[in-house]
Design a protein around this nucleic acid. Structure first.
Lengths: 166, 166
DNA sequence: TTGTTGGTTCAAAACTTTTTGAAACTTCAT
DNA sequence: ATGAAGTTTCAAAAAGTTTTGAACCAACAA
């Protein structure tokens, strides 16, 4: 397979994967492009390679920086900004977990707390409180598991844990 | 808090959470409604409660059955079908992992295999093959970790594992 | 066989999200 | 102070996704 073809395939697939991961298509494609680029790229380079508008490039680059998946690289005597991707996969996944936990799991935990104070003596209410309690328990476990995962280092993940569960 | 209010809040939040989990809003809302319902519900009941059309209800109920999150309950002498949610959270999460692994991780693994055969002696190609190899390694680990998770039972997850990583 | 109840399908409409592109802004060199 | 090179913003357009509802199909009772 030719390099160009492989690059394109990777960028497209990474984009598709991103879509189902709360990372929009273009954002994921920019990330893919930077991942496989040996040099930092400018906004212009990215627009050019992916055939996207300046506004789109700018917004998604900033979102990636926000998520901690891309870094700005400033060069002495250059006004324009260059961008590099975080290339360590474990760090990438950690940053995604942090963002999604904050955006999804934490608000849900808050709602579960609020609604577990339902007072009512119907059979319906009983079932309601019961299942909410179970979901809360489970979510709290997930929450602290993710916390530990994020604190744990890559070696632990790829080594000990893998052996343990095999 | 009143029961009605709590139910609504839960259904809305579960719907929002679903959106960022590859499960569409209505699909997640139907699942939420069934989760907190002590009785199986008919399609009609669901349409009524969530104020959605027959077509929408039908499609999303079937998607939930597909995902293994909802079961059909047939009653002797009743032509209409009733639906119950899988209420064990560990099972719910397992089923979601299975679906998403199949839809997302597996196609990515296939693409990574295809593109790691890139032949070219540029610096770019070197970096490309290197990072692809790293991503492949990581994805394979994730893949087998998820396999083990799915095989593991709930107690293992909530017990041993939790203690270990604390 | 016909009418009624319930399930399924799918094209069009409504809604949501993403992308564009032009204007505004910033920084710096002249 | 002006212009060049770059970045940011955002309203409108395009693209993508979900929902509706009406037509159709199936099972059954009368």
């Amino acid at each position: 397979m030719k390099l160009k073809e492989g690059k394109d395939k990777f960028i497209q697939s990474w984009g598709a994967l991103g879509s189902s991961w709360g990372i929009n298509r273009t954002m994921a494609q920019i990330h893919a492009l930077l991942l496989i680029s040996p040099e930092a790229l400018s906004a212009e380079d990215i627009m050019e390679e992916l055939q996207i508008s300046r506004g789109n490039a700018n917004m998604n680059i900033r979102a990636l920086i926000d998520w901690g998946l891309v870094y700005k690289e400033l060069r002495a005597g250059e006004r324009r900004e260059f961008f590099v991707a975080e290339k360590d996969m474990w760090t990438v996944v950690k940053h995604i977990i942090i963002q999604r936990k904050k955006k999804e799991l934490e608000p849900m935990l808050k709602v579960l707390d609020e609604i577990s104070s339902v007072e009512d003596n119907s059979k319906e209410a009983e079932e309601f409180v019961h299942i909410i309690r179970e979901i809360k328990l489970f979510s709290n476990k997930a929450d602290s598991t993710l916390d530990s995962l994020v604190k744990a280092d890559s070696n632990w993940f790829v080594g000990t844990f893998m052996k343990m569960i095999k």
